[in-house]
Design a protein around this nucleic acid. Structure first.
Lengths: 139, 139
DNA sequence: TATTGTTATACTCTATAACTATA
DNA sequence: TATAGTTATAGAGTATAACAATA
């Protein structure tokens, strides 16, 4: 019964997304803006051009996301030292704290999600996901 | 390593959502509009009020979704026989065909997703998801 | 008075196209 | 000429609040 498993997988995806959005909203963030912060947290200051390429999104869209993050104090636009056309999107102290809080929240959510699943089952589940991810990437 | 399993689960959720959206877009539908069609397909004509309650979304939002579906020929607004305030959102022939196509597409996507997973693994995976769903609903 | 659905307004995410400043 | 980012414009999903028609 692949349909049964499929429906359940979709439901998990929906609930998980809602849960993550709730957590972000509590920090004053949206999913798209949070993704920008995560990139900056992992790679340091980035040009908008680089953010657009990484998130696979239009340059216009990045302008809006950075506008929002700047207005709420998570990032600043700094001049690029070598290219006066470019800006370097840079985390503020608040932005850095948010990145850390998101990572902590993720670990906490992970522990809560898999609570009560025996280590063997967890390992089997992870291996199964690899198969599914492989199938999805082929399609 | 719950984090590992968690990240993989999130990635599956994202890829699955993208895949489903691609399929819907090919039929000229968006996820929110498709959800309206699915409800109508399963339950017959519904008042907008009922759709709002089912999708857990504002009445204003339903107005917009039904506007879009009506403009693209998937549904019509029929007068409610007993209540002149209400409208009955009703599938057209095109809407009915889209519901059927979506169900077929879902079965096909399910088969493709779980290809290569032995029946025992599939059953174990489904059981594991039950645990995860239970944990999520508690939170 | 309460309910159904609309108009008014607003915010977020997304896109393409035209434009400015700089390379 | 090409690139970085903006303004202009548009569509989709979401929300609250005010309002008209009807119960």
């Amino acid at each position: 019964m692949t349909i049964e498993a499929f429906e359940r997988t979709l439901e998990l995806a929906v609930l998980l997304r809602e849960e993550m959005e709730r957590r972000l909203a509590a920090d004053g963030l949206t999913p798209a803006r949070a993704q920008v912060l995560r990139e900056l947290g992992g790679r340091g200051p980035l040009q908008q051009r680089e953010l657009a390429a990484t998130l696979e999104v239009s340059a216009r869209n990045i302008t809006g996301l950075v506008d929002g993050l700047a207005a709420t104090g998570f990032v600043t636009r700094e001049p690029h030292p070598d290219d006066r056309r470019a800006t370097l999107v840079t985390l503020t102290a608040r932005g850095t704290a948010a990145v850390r809080a998101m990572a902590d929240g993720r670990a906490e959510a992970a522990a809560a999600l898999f609570a009560g699943l025996a280590p063997q089952r967890l390992a089997a589940y992870t291996a199964d996901l690899d198969v599914l991810l492989g199938n999805l990437r082929k399609a």
